[in-house]
Design a protein around this nucleic acid. Sequence first.
DNA 1: ACCTATGTTGATAC
DNA 2: GGTATCAACATAGG
Length: 252
Amino acid sequence: MPELPEAERARAVIQDRALGRRIAAVDDADVWVCRPHAPGEIAAALTGATLTDAHRRGKMLWVDTDRGPVLGLHLGMSGVIDVDAEPAAGSWDRFALEFDDGGRLALRDKRRLGRVILDPDLARLGPDAADATRAEFRRRVGRGSAPVKARLMDQSVIAGVGNLLADEILWRARISPLRPAGDLDPDELDGLRRSVRAAVRDSIRRGGSHTGELNPHRVRGGICPRCGTPLVRSTVGGRTTFWCPSCQPGAG
DNA sequence: ACCTATGTTGATAC
DNA sequence: GGTATCAACATAGG
């Protein structure tokens, strides 16, 4: 269920349960998930190293090692990090570190849209959605003719907002997902930023991007939990989108 | 059976 | 460059 909240949970799991452990072996045989690395390449870089720190920006995770190489992890659409879980049949382990204490860190990902990459390039990733300053947020988000929802989900603009979180954020901010981002005035952008921070904070606390107030109503026939108006369902920024035409007026 | 749907991102074309 | 579309993966459901 990976958006920012799930990535943060995964980072915390790595931090709490995997740091300080030494890598005895690496399973990097899945050439799709580990692309563009050849099988054995990640293993060669990491075997013998100890995990020293776990970081996150948006949905991107990376783990430092005492040997230098950095292990980049992305959960994609269905990935989960498991520490010390048995690799049962059907558990969809696509990558794993085996520690010299007998434990194991695995990327479990049925759909294989997750990613493992050495020394990930973070240059094209915007600031974490919850860390952008007001000025930075106004400047980065409040431009362009694309719908504001697409702008929020663009990881090079701000990092971490996915489809469910975007709908929740816009609903909280009472802004239509269809409004061209560049048409928002500074007050609206400040309000949008407040909603981003509040939605991110709440979803991390409650345990995921599916825990928003709007989410249970994000179904055909759903109504606005604030005013009872039937929600509109459409495609915005290429993704299924629900919003309240009464609370979130504007284009559409 | 066939079509749609699903939390992501990247490549590609205009 | 910005924007829109499709493809990559695997599965579920009408």
